[in-house]
Every structure is written in C-alpha cells, then in structure tokens.
Nucleic acid binder design. Structure first.
Length: 899
DNA sequence: CCACACACGTA
DNA sequence: CGTACGTGTGTGGC
C-alpha cells in the first residue's frame, strides 16, 4: 500500500515561527510565550493536511554538545544566545505532540537532521514515500525520487523540493549539495568556506570533477588565486564535508508502528490549550487530526448530536410545549439596541441537541403567546450570549421582558477574563468546547430575510453550543470561586442596566440647538481669527498641518515628541504661549494670537461636536438611550457608548451648560444625582488599614486639608490652598500608581520636591505605602489582582523583562483593586436602589451611572422618599472601616441636580 | 474603506 | 514616566 512518512525538524520549524509571529500577541496569563508553539502546530496541521501521512515523527535537537562540536568546537558557534522567550516553548511543543498522539524523538550527541536522515533512509527501504520538512539546508542532501523536502518559506509557504528543484536552486544534485556547501561554507553553522569560492565556482568544479573527492584529487590542476585558496583550505573543506554529512544509520530504537499517529487525546488537548490560551487551533486540531480510539464520541461535544429544524407557524408553540422548564439555549439574530430592538431570526436548543430556528415574521399568535410566556417565566432557565442585547431585541419584537437568564455566557467569560476587548461566541465555543461553529453569512445576519434550510445551521448551532459552553464556563467560575460575583452581581445588574438603557434620559433639544449655534459661532470666529494671524487658512483639526504652522512657519521651539512628530495638545500650546509672552517681535505677536485662537477653537469645536452628537442621538421619544457596556472595562467598571453619557462636560461653565439639556421627562418633576464622595481614597483607607487615614474619614474633616496637615506637620486649618492642592494631587495620583517624576510634572515642581512630598506623605501614612507595595507583590505572585468581591484582573506583564511593560503592569496592579472595588460597590448599590424603588412602589427610577454617581428621574412627590432611600442604600452597600459618604442633589436638569 | 494616531471629554 | 474608558477627526495604507 501507499505509505507516506512525514518527518519534521521540530526545533527548526518552531524557531522560524518564533520569529515570524509577534511574541507579545502570543502570551498567556502566566507570562508564557507561545508564538513558537502556535506556529509549529499550525505548520504541523498544514503539513498533515497537505501530505496525508500514514506515519509521522518529529525530531528535536538536544541542548548541549553533539559529536560535531566535539569534532570542531566552533561548530554553530558565534550564534546569539537562544532568546529567553523561546526557551521553554520546546518542551511545551513536545507536550502538545504527546497530546496529539504524534511521536517525537531526540538522540544524545546527535542533531534532529541525523534522526530525520536515518528515518528517511529506513522509510525508503520499507518502500515508503518520505516527506521531510526542515529549514536546515543540510536536508537538501536527503532529497531523491522517494524523498521530498518541504522547505519553509516566508508567509508560511512551503517550497516543495524535488531533485529537480534542488538542482535548479543550487546548480547541483542533492547528493552533490554537501560538497558544494563544504566549499562555499555555511554561515549558520559557523563553517568557513574557501575564500574567493562562491556558488558559481563550486558548481563549475563539481561539474568538472564530479564530486568533492574528485576536486581534491585534482586540486593541483586548478589554477589561479582560487586554486591556491582551495589548496590552502583543503583541511577545512574536508572538515566541513564531514560535519555537514547527515548520518543515516543512527541507533534509533523506534519501529514504524510507533510512528503511526496514535490519535488526539481530546482531554489532554483541552487542558493544554487552555493553559496556552489557544483558541483557533483547537477546533482545527480536533477536526484535522485523527482522534484517539474511544475519544471520538464525547457526549455534548460533538455537533453530530445537533438536529436543527426550521419552524413553520405553530412549531415554536409545540416545541416549547414540552420543554418550558428545561434549560434551553436562546440565540437571537436581530438588533439589541436600546429602544430599537428587534428579532429577525431566533433559535432555541435543548440539552439533547434538538434545535428549532424561527423567523420572527412567521410567528403565529399561538407561537407568540407561548414564546412570551416562556421568556417571562423566571423559572424557565435560559442560556444566552449577550443577554442584555437579547433583552432589547425581545422587548422590541414582542414587548416582553426577558427574565430567567441562567447563564449569560458573555458575562461569564468576562468574569473569567476581564481583559479581552470582545467575547465572540464562536471564539468561546472553539476555546472552551473545541468546536468550530459554522460561519454565518452576512445575509443571514440581515433581518427579516427569508431563510432556507441551510441557513438554520448557523443560528441553530449557536443556540445548541450555548448549553455546553455555559456548563464549561460555570465550572471554571466555580473552581475560581467567582460564581457569586456573576450570579449575585453581574447577572442581576444586566437587567437593571437593560431597563436603564430602555428608559433613556430626556433631552431638551431646544437647549441643544441653542448651544450648537452658540458654539458654532465661537468655532467660526476663532478659526477666522487664527487664519488672519498667520495670513492663510489651515485645517485647525489637523495636528500635522498645525505642526507646519507652529514649528516651520512661526519657528516656535519643538514640543514633546509623539510617534509622528511633535505634540500640539493644549498643554503644549499653553506652554508655547507662555514662552512668547516676553517677545514683542511680529512673529511673537502673530504666534500668540494664533495660539490663543487655536486653543479657543479646540475648546469650542469640542463643545460643538459634543452637542451635535447628543442631538443626533435623541430618538423619537425625545430621549437619549445610551448602551452600558458591562464587559469591556478590565477593572470591572461600566462604560457607556452610543452615545457616551459618562463623559459629558462637567468642569467648565460652558461645558456645564450641556448638562442643562438633560431634563426630567413627561411625568417626572426633577433629576437627582447621588454620588459617592472620595470613594477611592476611602477604599485606600479601608484596604490599607491606615489608622490616620481612617480617622480622617471618621472625623469627617476635609480630607485633603487633613492629610496636608499631617504631611506638613501643621494643623489642618493652617494648610494653605497651594499645600492642599499638592496633597490632593498626590492622593489621587497614588490611586493611579504615580511616580515622583509624574507628580513633579503635574505640579510643575522640582523632581526633588516631589520626591520629598512623597517621602513625607508615606512617612505619615505608612500603612498606605505598605499596602501599595503588598498589592504589587501579591499580584506578581498570583498573576492577578482582586477586588473586595474577588473580581480578578490578570497582569502577566508584572514579570516581563521589559521594564516599560512591567512598570505599566505595576501601575495597573495598584489601580485595579481600588477602581475595581469602587465599581463593585456602586454595582451593589444599583441593585439595592433598584430593588428598593421597585418594592417601595415608587415611580422614580435610575437612568444613568457615571462610575461614582447615579442619576435618577424623580416622580412628583417622591423626592424626599427617594433621597432617603438612595442615601441609605448607597451608604450601606458594603461595610468598610470608614463611612461611605453620599452626596445628593436635586434639580430641574442634570446641572442643577449637581451639588 | 479601514486602522491608527492624536486630541480631549469624564471618573 | 498616572488608572479606566469612548468619540471625532485626519492621515496613510490597502
């Protein structure tokens, strides 16, 4: 029979991958680099698919010497040390091979290529077709009509080297190649060739004398400088030839039976790929390599079990009929936008693999009633990816309120790994249950299209995959003790957020329009004045063009460098302005005018864009419906998009006018803001246990004056405002991992003064210092930080060799427990406030969250009751060693509700 | 058309 | 050389 033997040089292929793939993109939580492993497995899969071998072996070099280094100490000398990031990947590749059921070999004193040469020789003798893949040119000599070499090329291409191709590329036959290499030398192996002899000369000699032996025999007949050179270096050439000869008779104690792939051990692959963070390779490995015996039919992990059907009218009702209390997976294709949700297609699947896919447009009355009662049944457990989006889709399409979400797989994945930008369902399924979901075509993603039988596969498979995915994720969470965080905090919060988004906040479009026009006038005036100052137009929004004006035309001194030139940010422009203050030449006068108008333009255009963006996002109900992102911030915070209502101007007078456009809607009389005061410093006090800091909060004094009094050794009442400001900056900076350099820059004081300030601060608040140090130490040990609710953030860079990355990770480690705990606390408070409002039968409701602040819409007559309620529930969200102080304000708009 | 850089708003 | 985000604009690659 046709037997084919595939032989790989493991080290050589992995090393190429290591340099081909960006190492920082392949790094696990634990700091292990995996680019070489990933590339190797990828190459292996490709070779396997291309060659369909019956036998496979991977050969590795051993570290330490070989017979070649004994013979010639300089062999492969002069190479740079193996990169630290590559070491350690080889043993992991060998573990992967074990899991894949593929044999790998090493042999003391010999190189991978010797093993390959030996096996190739034996394979040919057995009548096999042999395919070798190695990036080592020495392997050329193995090529013949039964042995093909696949030589790796850039962009993961493989060059198929037959004897003809070798001849074409080297000018000699495969068995002559080592002769040629001996003459020319091999830089990679530190083997010098004959000076003056290149490939052309060597080819000519080999053609003339047949082989190296022939050349040596007739060395005296070769004239000219190269002849003399050859005669002088004849010993080196002989040595080269000896070293580059691959041994074909190694004592390998391996039989061809052992080289037959043993099949993939699923469990081992899952385990290993989990620790390696491999997502995309997992389904490929399982699909493209043979599975080990008894490992083919694993319950719940094979898509063979899936039976998806398209629903006709009445089918949904019938399907749900017998299953309404089972745990079911629900997948929705549609729009999950707040207040504009809709369902195009939906799919529901049960644990047995039965799935039904339905077009919303085909729902009968009976289907709708059955579906809605299932959706609104809290005892009917549902598994959904992005449940909040599903909530909106269902609200929009059925006017029903989703309850009974057992697992939101997106939220679960976020709790496990909060540092990913997105949590794509197909990626999670591939990663956690090792199945490649069928791609969904773009037209399947469109709403309301008629759907043929084939299209059911995508949604059906997704609904089906949710159930095993939820089981795996729940298991991971339980192992990590994070079940509570998901089920008691994030999952119920999802519904609270959905309702907040659904409500939106009323906007006064007349105010927005008035502001737009006022800001627009400022923009135009500033732009014209700026053009006048320099005598021509310029795009004031183009940093590149501004650099031309500032540094070339006006000859101003360069500012801080950016990646693509010099910064033109407000801070730098203000500095430049100050530098021109004492000059009265024409350029300086023009420069000052230009800079002043540019700053004015920046300010005005930002305000204008902000107002325009808000105006555009007002829906027909007169309200702005933001989307709160519950799974994007690595610290556990929420974020807000489309539009972002967490960064509405608040600091300047002009900016605050924008907040006047946020008003109570019909049926409500005011807005209320409730915020935590200094929650991060309170957490610092609590977590550090610093007695002085705790006392400050218990006494309820002005924090920054109190701390400044301690630092400067004076009474708080004697603290000047300059002293207070410095200490305030320092206190806030601590939460962000501020350095003395950063503090000096921010306060525009000497480095030494900043250092002194920090020293004095830590002298007085020693526990704070010890706490901050301990956070980093603990995080380095564990690999992650934790909040008061046990929310983790993984920071593998804490052990990076790269100082910048490491220090950045240290700052994140300092900040994450504080910022994240504050996020935990306000989330608890949101649940508790929401619950209290509902159970108190109040109409007032929460509309927005801005990290440490809630914005509520107050119904007539409820103001005082709500004030008391929010003070109580926010103030008692958690029990700390310092009080949680809450500020409340009420007014006719968001600005007026500030306090 | 898309990704990136820059600038800047919030906590 | 202070954390966490999102958005608008310009730019230069494809």
């Amino acid at each position: 029979m046709n037997q084919r033997l595939l032989l790989l040089d493991g080290h050589s292929l992995a090393f190429r991958s290591f340099f081909a793939l960006p190492k920082d993109a392949f790094r696990t939580d634990q700091g292990q680099y995996t680019n070489g492993i990933h590339g190797f497995v990828n190459t292996l899969l490709k070779l396997y698919a291309d060659t369909k071998p019956t036998h496979v072996a991977v050969a590795f070099d051993l570290s330490g010497g070989t017979f070649r280094t004994k013979e010639y100490a300089a062999y492969k000398g002069g190479r740079a040390d193996t990169p630290e990031e590559f070491k350690g990947q080889i043993p992991l590749i060998q573990e992967v091979l074990d899991a894949l059921g593929i044999t790998w070999l090493t042999l003391d004193q010999y190189e991978a290529d010797d093993i390959i040469a030996t096996l190739a020789e034996r394979g040919v003798k057995e009548g096999m077709e042999v395919v070798v893949s190695s990036g080592d040119k020495d392997a050329y000599q193995l090529v013949n009509d039964r042995v093909t070499l696949l030589y790796p090329m850039p962009r993961s291409q493989m060059l198929e080297m037959t004897p003809e191709v070798v001849k074409e590329r080297t000018g000699v036959t495969p068995d002559q190649y080592p002769d040629l290499a001996a003459l020319v030398g091999e830089k990679a192996d530190n083997l010098p060739g004959v000076p003056g002899v290149g490939a052309k000369t060597a080819q000519k000699w080999i053609a003339a004398y047949g082989s190296l032996d022939g050349i040596i025999e007739h060395a005296d007949e070769i004239g000219g400088k190269v002849g003399a050179s050859l005669r002088e270096n004849i010993e080196q050439v002989k040595l080269n030839r000896k070293l580059n000869h691959l041994l074909r008779d190694m004592p390998l104690e391996v039989s061809f039976d052992e080289l037959k792939p043993r099949g993939v051990n699923r469990e081992a692959v899952h385990q290993l790929f989990d620790t390696l963070d491999f997502t995309s390779l997992r389904p490929r490995v399982l699909a493209e390599l043979p599975l080990a015996e008894g490992d083919t039919e694993e319950a719940g992990e094979s898509m063979d079990a899936l039976e998806a059907v398209m629903a006709g009218p009445g089918d949904i009702a019938r399907w749900l009929g017998g299953r309404s209390t089972q745990r079911l997976g629900l997948y929705i294709l549609g729009s999950g936008e707040p207040a504009r949700g809709d369902v195009g297609l939906l799919a529901i699947a049960d644990e047995s693999g039965q799935a039904i896919v339905a077009d919303r447009a085909d729902f009968s009355e009976e289907d709708e009633a059955s579906f809605v009662s299932w959706i609104e049944d809290a005892e009917a457990p549902k598994v959904i990816h992005e449940a909040k989006a599903a909530w909106h889709a269902i609200k929009g399409a059925f006017n029903a309120h989703l309850v009974g979400v057992d697992v939101d797989t997106e939220l679960a994945a976020y709790i496990l790994h909060p540092d990913q930008r997105t949590y794509d369902l197909a990626d999670l399924v591939a990663r956690h249950i090792g199945i490649a979901l069928p791609d969904m075509e773009a037209d399947e993603l469109d709403l309301g299209l008629s759907v043929g039988g084939g299209a059911a596969n995508g949604p059906g498979a997704r609904a089906w995959a949710l159930l095993p995915l939820a089981t795996v994720l729940s298991g991971e969470l339980a192992k990590r003790d994070s079940t509570e965080l998901l089920n008691s905090l994030e999952r119920p919060l999802m519904t609270v957020l959905a309702r907040m988004e659904d409500r939106g906040i009323a906007a006064d479009v007349a105010v927005l329009e008035e502001l737009r026009s006022a800001f627009d006038a400022r923009v135009t005036a500033a732009a014209e004045a700026a053009y006048a100052a320099i005598g021509h137009d310029v795009n004031l929004s183009s940093p590149k063009q501004l650099q031309g004006v500032l540094f070339d035309e006006l000859g101003l001194p360069p500012t801080r460098k950016t990646k693509s030139g010099y910064t033109t940010n407000a801070e730098a422009l203000t500095d430049l302005y100050a530098q021109l203050a004492f000059r009265e030449d024409d350029t300086a006068v023009a420069g000052r005018e230009f800079l002043g108008q540019l700053l004015e333009h920046r300010d005005a255009i930002k305000l204008k864009q902000s107002v325009e963006g808000l105006a555009k996002s007002v829906l027909s109900d007169g309200r702005i419906h933001t989307t709160f992102q519950q799974t994007v911030a690595a610290t556990g915070r929420l974020s807000s998009t489309e539009p972002n209502l967490q960064n509405i101007h608040a600091r300047t007078e002009e900016g605050q006018r924008i907040r006047e456009a946020f008003v109570p809607g019909d049926g409500y009389e005011s807005l209320m803001t409730v915020d935590y005061s200094q929650i991060e410093m309170r957490l610092m006090a609590h977590q550090s246990g610093d007695a002085a800091l705790i006392q400050a909060f218990i006494d309820g004094e002005d924090l920054h004056s109190y701390v400044a009094g301690h630092v400067y050794g004076i009474s708080p009442s004697a603290v000047t405002s300059a002293q207070r400001n410095k200490i305030k900056a320092m206190s806030y900076g601590l939460v962000y991992g501020l350095s003395a350099f950063g503090l000096s820059r921010q306060l525009r004081i000497d480095r030494s003064e900043a250092q002194q300030l920090m020293d004095d601060y830590f002298e007085r608040f020693g526990a704070v210092k010890r706490y901050l140090d301990s956070i980093v130490a603990q995080a380095r040990k564990d690999g992650y930080t934790s909040t008061i609710l046990g929310r983790r953030r993984y920071l593998p860079d804490l052990t990076s060799d790269n100082r910048q990355r490491r220090e950045a990770a240290e700052r994140m480690a300092l900040n994450a427990p504080i910022q994240g705990s504050a996020a935990d606390i306000i989330k608890i408070a949101m649940l508790s406030v929401d619950e209290a409002l509902t159970s108190g039968s109040l109409t007032s409701r929460v509309l927005l969250q801005v990290h440490d602040e809630l914005v509520l819409e107050i119904a007539p007559g409820e103001r005082d009751a709500v004030r008391e309620l929010v003070e109580t529930h926010m103030g008692s969200a958690v029990d700390l060693s310092v009080p949680l102080s809450v500020g409340v304000g009420v007014g006719a708009n968001w600005r007026a509700a500030a306090h």
